[in-house]
Design a protein around this nucleic acid. Structure first.
Lengths: 214, 214, 214, 214
DNA sequence: GATGAATGAGGATTCATTCAT
DNA sequence: TATGAATGAATCCTCATTCAT
C-alpha cells in the first residue's frame, strides 16, 4: 500500500500534527477552488490564498498543482472506501442486478453530491488518451474497483472484456454525473434514474442468469 | 453602391478571396492545435503560429479564441449535415432499432475520426452546468438533432423526456468517443460495438414495438 | 501661406472632388472619434471604420494620426476665422473691457460647444513643454490671435509680456472650457460667467485707462 | 495569531520591509516614467523596467496602473499635508489676500517643482467630465482643501459658489503650472507672478473687506 | 515551517502602418 | 483610388514556481 504522495520521494515518515492540519487545510481550499473554477483554471496562488497561507507554504507540502489533485483524489477514494467498504458494492449473488446497480449508483451519487470536487477531478482529459497524472491515478483506481464489482457479476468473462466494460460503465457514469449535477430537484432525480436504466440494461445481457428478476 | 455606415455597427464585411483562404487556413490550424493541446490550453498565438501568420492577422478575422471554436464547430456541423442529410439518421419505421443506431453511430464515429477536433469542441465544461459558448452552441445543435431523431422513435413521449433522453444519448456517445479515440484497431472496434450496445439496450424499451427484432 | 497638409510634400496641387469629399468624411469621423475617446485613445482604424472606409484609404489622404488632427485643427481655425473675422474680437477702443471679453468668450464658447472636438485638440500636453505637433500648431495659431487682440488692448506693453499674458489667457480659457463642458444648464452658465470674471479682473489693470467703465 | 481567512477577502496584508522598499522603489520609478511619458503613455512594463524588477513583481503590489497612480497621488497629498499643515494655507483674517495667495501659490509651486509627477497626475481628463479614478481622487482631495481655504475667505458664500470658485482656482492653477513648468528662470518666475495676479484679482471681490490692503 | 517577494515567459489583444490586389 | 489583409511590436496582466528571510 504505497503512501499518498507518490511524487516526491523521501518525505519524513511521520508528519507533524501541524503539518497534517496544514495539508488538510490546503486540500479543502483546493477542493473549493477546483469546484469553483475547474481544475485547469485553478491557480496554486488562488488555492494558497483560499487556504489563508502563502504560496511558499503550499509548496512546502506539495511539489506542484498536480500533486494536490492527486492527494485530494487519493483521500476521496479512501474516504469512499471507508464509507462503503472495499468493494464498490457488496455483490450478493442473490441481489437482482437492478437493485445492485441502483444501490451502487445511489451511493456514488450521494458521495459525489457531497464531494463535488470529485467531478472536477474525474473530468476527462482534454485530449483522448493523454490523461493528466491526477486523473489517471483516480481513474485507474475507480476502474479497478468497478472491475472488481464486474468480475463477480461476469464470472466467465475475459479480463479484457471486463476492463472494457468497466471503462464503459465509468464513462457512462461520468457523463451522467455531469448531467445530474447540472440539474436540480425532480429533473436531477430523473437523470439519476436514467443512468441506472442505461447501466442496468447495458449489463443485463452480460451478467448471466443470476439477474433473473423474478 | 459602397455604403458608408457612420456607426460602428458590424456590417456584413465584404471579404476578399484571400481572406477566405486565410480563414480556412486559420481554422485548420486551430483544429490542429485544439487536437494537440485541447481547447483550453490552446493559445491564439499558437494558432496563428501554426497557421504561419501573425497574431494580428488572426484577430482580423476572429475577435477571440471562442469565436474560432464557434466557427469551427459551425462548419463541422454544416459539413456533417451536408454529408449525412438533415436528420441525424433516416428513420424508416421499418428499420430495426439496432440497425438504425448502428448506422448512426457508425456515421458519427466516422465523422469524428475524420475530424478529431470535434472531440475537443464537444468536450464538456469544467464545471457542471457552466458551458463555454462554443460548446454550448455545438451542444445545442447536436441535442436538437438527436431530439429530432428520437422524436420519430418515441412518438408518444413528452418533450421533456425526449430532451432528457437526448442528453443521455449524447453523454453516452461523448464518453464512448473518448474511449474509442483512446484505442486503436480491434480494441477500438470493440468499443464502438459497446457504445452501440449501450444505446440500443437503453433505447429499446423506450421506442414502442417498432423495434421488433425479426 | 502654406497649404494644409504640411507633413507630406508634393501632393498633387488640386485634389479631386471625390478626394475632398473623402477628406471631409474622414475628418468628420475623426472629430466624432476624438470626442468619444479623446485624441490619444483614438485609433486610426476606429476613425476609418467610423468613416466607413478602409484603413488604407485613410492613409491615402493622411500620413498618420497626427496629420488628421492637424488638418482638423486647421479647418476649425479657418472656420472660426470665417465666422468671427480675422481678429478674435473687434477691438473698438470705446468698448468697455468687460463687454469685449464677454463677447469674445461667448463667441469662443459657442464655437467650442458647437465643435466639441476643439477641446480634444486643444487639450494640453501630457508633459509640460513637450507638445504634440497637433496641439502645437493649433496652440500657436490661437496664441497669435490672442496676442493680436491683446496688442490692441495693451498698446505700450513689451511683446514678451503680451505673449505671456496671451498664454495665461488661453490657459485660463482652456481650464474654464473643461469645467464648462463638464456641466450643464445653469451651472454651465455660471462657469462661463466665472471665466469672464477671471479674465476681466486679470486684464483690468493691464489695459490702461480705456477700460474705464463709465 | 495568524488568522487564516478562508474567503478571498482582502485582509490587511502584513508586508515585509523588503516589500515596503519595493513599493517605494516602484512608486519612484512610476513617478519618473509618468514625468517622462505622461500618465496615459506610461506602461506598467516600462515602470517595472525602470524600477529594475520584473512585471510580475509590480503586480504583486499593485493590481494595475491606476492603482500605482492613486497610491502615488495619495502619498504626495500626505507629504504635502505633512509639509504644509492641514489647511492649504493658514488663513489669519488679518493677512492681506495678496499675501495669503502669494504664500499658497509659492508653497504649491515649490511642491510641484520638487515633485513634477504631480502635474502628470493632476492632468485633466481627455474627455470633459470623464475622469480616470486616479485623477478623480487627487482632484477631489485638492478641491476639498481649496474649499476649506476659500470657506474661511468667503464666510457668507453659498456652498455651491464656494465649490465653483474652488474649481476655477484649481483650473487656473493647473493651467498656470503647465506654463510655469514649461519655462525656466526669469520667465518661470514671471509666470508664477501672473498666476498670483490672476487669482488675487479674481478672488478680490469675493472675499469681503478683509483683504484691505493697507 | 512559514512568509511574502520575485521571477519571466507566456497569455489575449490592439494598433499604427504598409502592401498586394 | 480603394480595399481589406498583413504585420509585429507593444499593451496589460497571470501563474507555476523558487528563494531569501
Amino acid at each position: 500500500m504505497p503512501d499518498h504522495p507518490q511524487t516526491q520521494k523521501e518525505q519524513p515518515r511521520r508528519r507533524q500534527a501541524r503539518g497534517e492540519r496544514r495539508i488538510a487545510q490546503l486540500l479543502e481550499a483546493a477542493a473549493r477552488v477546483f469546484c469553483t473554477t475547474g481544475y485547469t483554471a485553478a491557480s496554486t496562488n488562488a488555492i494558497a490564498r483560499e487556504a489563508g497561507v502563502s504560496p511558499g507554504t503550499l509548496y512546502q507540502f506539495f511539489p506542484n498543482k498536480e500533486a494536490i489533485a492527486i492527494e485530494l483524489g487519493d483521500r476521496l477514494v479512501h474516504e469512499m472506501r471507508d464509507t462503503y467498504g472495499e468493494a464498490l458494492a457488496p455483490v450478493d449473488p442473490a441481489t437482482p442486478l437492478e437493485e445492485a446497480i441502483g444501490a451502487a449508483i445511489d451511493r456514488f451519487m450521494a458521495f459525489n453530491t457531497e464531494h463535488p470536487v470529485f467531478f472536477a477531478l474525474m473530468h476527462g482529459p482534454d485530449i483522448p488518451g493523454r490523461m493528466a497524472e491526477t486523473h489517471d491515478q483516480l481513474h485507474t483506481t475507480l476502474i479497478g474497483r468497478i472491475e472488481d464489482l464486474l468480475g463477480s457479476l461476469m464470472p466467465g468473462a475475459a479480463p479484457a472484456d471486463v476492463t472494457r466494460t468497466a471503462h464503459i460503465c465509468l464513462g457512462v457514469y461520468k457523463a451522467g454525473l455531469e448531467l445530474v449535477l447540472a440539474h436540480e430537484g425532480a429533473e436531477r432525480a430523473a437523470y439519476v434514474q436514467e443512468i441506472k436504466n442505461v447501466l442496468v440494461r447495458y449489463l443485463h445481457p452480460l451478467v448471466g442468469d443470476r439477474l433473473g428478476r423474478g
